[in-house]
Write a protein that binds this DNA or RNA. Structure first.
Lengths: 350, 350
DNA sequence: ATTTTTTTGAGGAGCGTACCTCAAAAACGT
DNA sequence: ACGTTTTTGAGGTACGCTCCTCAAAAAAAT
């Protein structure tokens, strides 16, 4: 038995800073809140005291005094896609805790794959009403510039699910999609025993996340699994009906199809086709996102594995990052890292 | 584009309760903090007002006024096991944020598989100094009773990693280990192509988590993978050296070994043996917990998959649950669910 | 050296809650 | 109806911080 105790140090307060810096509380306050009318030398004195004491502002007390409420805007594609629905629900869930978290969220839904909509909404964002924006959208030049304009107004922006690296969004909340594609490929390669062709069902060429998944998938199949051949990918536009209609032709073209990687949304169409047409049980299907539908397909054995990202985690993380950015305080990188979840029928959450 | 805005409602405060209930602030305070000297009828009046208003106590303000600091005690086995080390580091990390989170943590390390040590420590817990206890230990009758005694003192207890369901611990923070074993079996069954024997390397018969994993593993192999046969499991006592010494004999006994499920700790010994002895590349190895060592083994191809649980998530969750229990406030079940993480070399975190 | 401008200090009110004291009111026992 | 006990109310102080005002001091400009 070995004990490890912490020495109890009193938390330094604004009054301590004032005392140590030899200035008044008012001056400390001016410095802390970047109010004007303080000489550079004085600012330095205060800063020195802050550093010496290791002062950390009590955000809870500050927010109480300020009666601060964070208003965050979420921009999501307006589809009946289960994953987007899950995100919406999680955002609503956040709002339910608005009193506890001092955070109010609102959602703006935009026509999918329609950058102009996003641009309009971003340009309409008012810094007096909105303290942060989270965007799930395609990485186009116009979106990129609109994000820049929002940030120029001093409003933090995070990209969700699909990154916007060329804009200078403050953070990206989501998985590494190249890695997700690689993971899918690895599972595919190890689940499929015989040689044959593999199809990648993608969503849109505009969606960065879809492109990245495809890219990762191809790389790993090429590197590690010579028994597989990835055929030209098919764009399903996240549309179940379209996907359903396309499937027969695909199976006709590739009689030696051994696997499908459904890297985007619209799983309903795929599932419908698979259950109706009684394809080989050997066919390995790997899809994305754990939703009621994909979960059932996994349980029934229609799907073999799911690559997923936790919608609750994504939304909570987006909120925490927007709050931290808005307050200019650090955050825990590890906590905000969204994991690439792999679901088999054996490790489904209850 | 479709907008969804929230009506802005003012957060009800204690003063609102007093007004609505037609009593004084002092009385509301007495009721809220369960202070004596209030008639049952008055308590009901206040409670009614609370319900009507949907009042939620502002914990931040309350903790400020109380100058509350949460003191949590973590009881961990004293091993040089990487996973336990990761937990310790995460606990220390929590303490680093003690000013922000108003949470102070301390760690007590106990001799592994030695219930008496845990009992002593639990019995020494003082309610004036400790606001909650998190225990990672074996489920023995004496531990169970000691946990009960701690709870009888009004101190919340959570079990970490390995559950103590027979004690009435407030919560369990960790994965479903039966499910983890099932997951390992599923991967094993699908990764191994030819028929052969599979070995389960376990830790201790006392550890509930190890037992559960074994159980889940056996079930799924029996159900779904007739080409595999699970042989009698070997107890490694989480000891790398012991495991290293045992391996040659095992390989001699089972020339047709196709897979190893290392369900406990002590991976270092296994890795050392595998790299030295150049066993077949076909041999599938699935181990537990992502650590520097197991990570490297996965990258090198020595391990084929890892079943893991996020140590950061576990500690943060334990702290949040202890805090919530101690305050008597609800918590977000989904957020506190620890996932069974599957790592392949393609989805390792950066 | 005087005026003007800038910088600083002192102090107070308030955020939502806790906790304390003292007196007044209500309920109770006889 | 009396005293006694219990219950309630009024008010204050505090937590750590924000934000405001007004006056005093210091620095800069003339």
């Amino acid at each position: 038995m070995e004990e490890q105790k912490l020495e109890v140090v009193n938390k330094p307060t604004v009054n301590d800073i004032a005392r140590v810096a030899g200035v008044s509380l008012a001056t400390v306050d001016r410095v802390l809140n970047r109010r004007p009318g303080v000489r550079a030398v004085t600012i330095q004195k205060v800063q020195k005291a802050i550093d010496e004491l290791g002062y950390i502002r009590d955000t809870a007390a500050a927010n109480l005094a300020r009666r601060r409420v964070y208003n965050f805007l979420f921009v999501l594609p307006d589809t009946d896609n289960e994953f987007v629905e899950a995100l919406s629900n999680q955002i609503a869930e956040q709002s339910r805790n608005q009193f506890i978290e001092r955070t109010r969220t609102s959602i703006q839904k935009v026509t999918p794959f329609e950058p102009q909509d996003i641009v309009e909404i971003l340009d309409a964002v008012d810094g007096r009403e909105v303290d942060g924006v989270a965007v799930f959208g395609p990485e186009t030049p116009s979106v990129r510039d609109a994000v820049k304009r929002v940030r120029d107004k001093g409003i933090p922006v995070v990209a969700m699910v699909s990154d916007l690296p060329s804009s200078d969004r403050d953070h990206f909340v989501g998985i590494d999609n190249v890695s997700a594609g690689r993971t899918a490929a690895h599972l595919m390669g190890r689940f499929v025993h015989q040689r044959g062709k593999v199809l990648v069902l993608t969503g849109s060429r505009l969606a960065r996340d879809h492109l990245e998944r495809r890219q990762g998938f191809d790389l790993v199949v090429a590197e590690d699994f010579p028994h597989l051949e990835v055929v030209a990918s098919v764009e399903g536009r996240d549309d179940p009906e379209l996907i359903y209609k396309m499937m027969p032709e695909i199976f006709d073209s590739y009689p030696d199809l051994v696997g499908i990687y459904s890297s985007a949304a619209g799983n309903a169409g795929l599932i419908q086709f698979l259950t109706e047409s009684k394809v080989s049980e050997e066919l390995v299907i790997i899809a994305h996102e754990l939703t009621p539908l994909s979960r059932e397909a996994l349980c029934m054995g229609t799907f073999d594995a799911l690559i997923s990202q936790d919608s609750g985690h994504i939304i909570r993380s987006a909120v925490r990052l927007l709050r931290a950015t808005s307050d200019g305080v650090p955050f825990n990188r590890a906590q905000e890292r969204i994991r690439i979840d792999i679901y088999l029928k054996e490790n489904l959450p209850p």
